[in-house]
Amino acid sequence: MLISNIEVIPNKRVVEHLGLVQGSTVRAKHAGKDIMAGFKNIFGGELGSYTELLQESRDEAVQRMQEQAQAIGANAVINVRFSTSAIAAGASEILAYGTAVVVQDT
């Protein structure tokens, strides 16, 4: 499935708009990683486990958005946007949303 955050896709033509689709997920790392991250906060640097957490969440959110798009018969999602918010300590919500469309090669 084609996922893009632009509206006009080169060499493709949107033949049908299907509407808004979205995927969201709230994930947490296990307590051990939370503690390690706490230590890391002292020394600075990249929090590998949280980078991984957010990436996993984003993948999952996109996956869910695709599922929704597939369920309504789309073959592409365009104009995709992400939104991240920390809703609880150590857990964050990722939202991906876009417009499900049917595209054709021109």
Partner: peptide
């Protein structure tokens, strides 16, 4: 949060 994974109750 202790175990890790999807927090489906918040979802």
């Amino acid at each position: 949060n202790l175990v890790g994974g999807n927090i489906s109750s918040y979802e």
